[in-house]
Design a protein around this nucleic acid. Structure first.
Lengths: 140, 140
DNA sequence: TTCGGTGCAAATTTTTTGCACCCGC
DNA sequence: GCGGGTGCAAAAAATTTGCACCGAA
């Protein structure tokens, strides 16, 4: 593979392209979504270790470049996911822990209402909706 | 004030009514919403200190009783709020940090869509929507 | 009197920082 | 070679836990 767009963008802003940065981004894309610690382990499976501090620093950089984003899929840890592919909103089941991705289109009425009622512009990419999935939520 | 409903419910489940538990609940109601640390300081203003471990343990208990709930108003800390008063969804401005409360009614179409499309039952009380408030979001 | 609850301190867990050395450009 | 980037270890934060003592019922 030749130089990609993001790699050029990285350099255009004075940053350097390092193997660690490539590994972390690749790991996030492979995982779908993961916490810093999960990303660390994913990177290790693929190659030699990258230090956890570098994971944190790299995720911060990648997020500032818009290559990854984070949301909170658990009460305790930030979860990063790649911005490659279509936007989506995360649905997290409180019972089984399953994470599904919903079409942002479903949230259009909400965005409209919040704009009209509160002048509020929603950041859908960061949104995670907690609740019960179809399997866990069945009653009677 | 005489014995309230929650106090009886507490005892009905074998728990004891302690001054710490009353202080923590009062602090949460007074603050509107706050992190464990903010609640600790709020309690201290009102009376003698309560240990931070007790704050954590008490919030967990109060949440299991349904007297308080938590959501995530910042990337890092859980924020507790009392369930007294009407339900509401939190809107958090990424720019100025302001937190506003939105009418759950505005989210009805979203709840409906997620039920239909994913069989997903939303927990609105835990929801916090990030974005830009009317003041910060104005462009041009 | 009996346990559940609290304070305290130590242990964990998660994230951030300082700094010497390394390597991309 | 220069200056940003990384590894390492120590520092900070944020929670959790073990345990002896206290006090609500």
């Amino acid at each position: 593979m030749t130089t990609t767009d993001w790699q050029e963008r990285l350099r255009a802003q004075g940053y350097r392209l390092t193997p660690q940065r490539e590994l972390v981004l690749a790991a996030v894309e492979r995982l779908g979504h993961g916490t810093p610690d999960e990303i660390l382990h994913a990177v290790r499976e693929q190659s030699e270790a990258v230090n956890i501090s570098t994971i944190y620093r790299t995720l911060e950089l990648l997020e500032s470049l818009g290559l990854v984003r984070h949301t909170h899929l658990s009460d305790r840890a930030p979860t990063y996911h790649s911005t490659t592919g279509p936007d989506h909103v995360h649905l997290k089941c409180r019972s089984c822990g399953e994470v599904t991705e919903a079409d942002p289109e479903l949230f259009a009425p909400m965005l409209e209402s919040l704009t009209v009622e509160h002048g509020f512009t929603v950041d859908l990419g960061h949104l995670t909706v907690f609740g019960l999935c179809g399997t866990c939520g069945v009653r009677d």
